[in-house]
Design a protein around this nucleic acid. Sequence first.
DNA 1: CTTGACTCTATACCATAGTATAGAGTTTAG
DNA 2: CTAAACTCTATACTATGGTATAGAGTCAAG
Lengths: 136, 136
Amino acid sequence: MTLTIGQVADAAEVNVQTIRYYERRGLVAAANRTEAGYRQFGDDAVTRLRFIRHAQDLGFSLKEIKELLALRVRNHSECGRVEAKAREKIELVARRIRDLRRIKRTLERLAASCASRRATDECPILEALEDDAIRI
Amino acid sequence: MTLTIGQVADAAEVNVQTIRYYERRGLVAAANRTEAGYRQFGDDAVTRLRFIRHAQDLGFSLKEIKELLALRVRNHSECGRVEAKAREKIELVARRIRDLRRIKRTLERLAASCASRRATDECPILEALEDDAIRI
DNA sequence: CTTGACTCTATACCATAGTATAGAGTTTAG
DNA sequence: CTAAACTCTATACTATGGTATAGAGTCAAG
């Protein structure tokens, strides 16, 4: 029960070119070929594509996903190292959340400064952005 | 009191090529030239580069920064529209924070599932990522 | 048995925000 | 006056994650 690249693409809801691209990047195993050179996939290819999408949704890059997959192949899943990568990503996400919160506060402060401006003043947001004292 | 591109780059701590790139993209006014074709900048160029950096730090793309700058030029700062753009960005940042929090929770759940795994089990993180039921 | 749909490779292209390089000309310090 | 440092334009290249296209070959349905 083999699938063509188009059938896999439909099942996983990705582009045909994207599958070839993933194959080139080593995220999807190079499929067997028919005599005419057509790729022949199994169901596992669809599972793999789903894995990639879910990992992307969690903030992993294709490079990182490749590393995660390598941990599975080597030694029947080195779970501890997978967990470590997950925890690294958690730290990164936490940092990014903190950064965005600071950014949000600064933007709110700037937006509020517009309200207290007199009609003849320059735009306080634009003024503030020019100044190194802005400290985001 | 004119500055060469190199002096502006040093003062604003950006690359010389970056200034030329911004000029091409219309973020920095095309400078006057000497007879030999060298750009001549004023202090305002340094201020402008600082503006760009601060706005980038707040999450504005170069395209958006160009729009902000256009609001200044036209009609001596259309402050209301600047404020509107700031509030749009605040909304975007807030959404992004919510997304990242969901991602963080999912990652934490996955990492925790490693702790409760028995030695013979497959890595629960890798298993979960294959499953559409993951719901990030 | 032809036509349309599909697949193949290779290459180019999109956005984003730059950086690097080549090859030529200019300016400045010793 | 020469050599180093700087500037000029134009083009290519980086990373990221794909998408689009050209030109050729293959497969399936009517």
